[in-house]
Computed example of a mutant assay.
Amino acid sequence: MRERAAADSGRRAEARWWQAPEAGRANAVHPGAWWLWALGLAVAASRTTNPLLLGLLVGVAGYVVAARRTDAPWARSYTAFLKLGLVVIAIRVLFSVVLGSPLPGTHTLFTLPELPLPEWARGIRVGGRVTAEQVVFALYDGAKLAALLICVGAANALAAPARLLRALPGALYEAGVAVVVAMTFAPHLVADVGRLRTARRLRGRSAGGIRAVARIGLPVLESALERSVAVAAAMDARGYGRTAEVSPAVRRTTAVCTLGGLIGICAGTYALLAAEGAAYGVPLLAAGLAASVAGLRLGGRRSPRTRYRPDRFGPRSWLVAGSGAAVAALMIAAAGYAPGALHPSLIPLTPPELPLWPALATLAGLLPALVAPVPVPATNTVTAREEAP
C-alpha cells in the first residue's frame, strides 16, 4: 500500500511539474516579499489617477490574495479593506460636494444652498454649485487612496504577522511587536464580529440594528481583553523586554545611522511618490536604506535573540518581490513618456482610456499567483497527519 501511494504521489508530481508546489516550511514565501510586492503595487497606484488602471491594480491584488491566502483569521481581512476603500471614496466625494473644490467646471450638476462664512474664512465655502468636473476629480482622488489601502490589505492578508515579526532584526523587535499586535487586532475583531452575528442568527435573533450592535460589542470587547492578557502573559514568559549592555559609542552611532537612514528613506520615498523627483529619489532612498541597515545591525546587539527555523528569502520570494518592483518601475517609466494616459483630462472632461503598456505592466503583478507555493488547507493537514503511520 505504501509503495502504491508513493507511486501515485510520484505520478501526480510528474503530471504537475509545471505548477507551484504545496506550501511548507522549506519553500514558503518570505513575509517581507509579500510586503515588497504590495508596496510595489501601491507605488504604481500612486502614480496614476486613471480609474481603469487603479481597478486593474486592485483586481491583480485581489486575484493573488484569492489564489494564495490561507484560511487563518488574519487572512480574511482583505474584504474589510475593500469595504474601507469604498468608504474612503464615498467620503472623498461627499467632502467635495459639500465643501467645494478649487477645480473650475462648466457642467453644473446641481446647486446646494451656500452657507455664508465670515471674512477670515475667505477661500472656504460650504455648499454652492456642484460641477461634474469636481465630482469626477474627487472620485479619481478617492479611488487612488482606496487602491493604496487595498494594496496594504493584500499584504496583511498574505503575510503571516508572526512570521513577519520573527523576520525583523533585533533592533526593531519592540516596535515590531506593537505593529504586529495592532495588525492582528483588526482581523481578529472582524472574525469575532462575524462569529457573534452568525450565532445570533442561529438563535433566531436579529444581527442588524443599533441594539444588535450594542449587544455584540460587549462580547467582542471581552474577547479582545482576554486576548491581550494572554499575549502579555506569553510575552512575559518569553523574557520580552530584556536587553544586553552596549557601549555609549555604539548607542550614539546606532542612533545617528538609524535616524539619518529613516530621514533618507522618507525623503526618497516622497520623491518617488511625487509627480517629479524620481531622479534624486532613488539615490536618497538607497543611501537611507544603507544607513538604516547599518544602524539596525548595530542596534541588534542590544537584543540578543535566537530564531527557530528562520525564514529564507529563496528564489520564489525574490520573484514575488521582484514582480511588485517591476510594476512600480514600469509605471514610473510610463509616467515619464505618457502622463496623459495615466491622468485623464478633467478640463475638458473626457472619459478615461486604458493605455496598453501600463496595463500590461500592471499584469506583471500576477506572477505571485503562479510561482508562490499553494497553501494547504488546515483540514487537509490534519487529515494527512491522522492517516500517517
Rank of each mutant, 00 (worst) to 15 (best):
A90S: 13
V179F: 12
A159Q: 00
R47Y: 00
E119C: 03
K144I: 06
V181I: 14
T362L: 12
A167G: 08
S206C: 13
L139S: 12
L284E: 02
R301K: 11
G324C: 02
G261V: 10
V193N: 06
P339T: 04
G55D: 05
A90M: 08
D8I: 14
G100W: 04
L346P: 07
P315A: 15
A20T: 04
L36Y: 00
P21S: 03
V152P: 01
G340V: 06
C257R: 11
K144M: 14
V177I: 10
R227Y: 08
F313G: 04
A244V: 09
G365L: 05
E245C: 04
Y63K: 09
P21Y: 07
R301E: 15
V213K: 02
R195Y: 09
A72Q: 13
S323D: 01
S317N: 07
G300V: 05
W37I: 04
A20H: 07
Y240N: 00
M235V: 00
V60T: 09
E14K: 14
A15T: 05
R195L: 08
Y308K: 11
R305H: 08
A279E: 12
V229Y: 13
L103E: 04
R211F: 09
H188F: 13
D311V: 12
A44V: 09
G288Q: 08
P161Y: 03
G209P: 10
P375F: 01
S228K: 07
L272V: 08
C151N: 10
N50Y: 06
A328L: 02
V220P: 05
G59W: 05
Y78D: 00
R302I: 05
R385W: 13
A359R: 05
S345Q: 14
N380E: 15
V135Q: 00
P116E: 13
L259Y: 12
L259F: 12
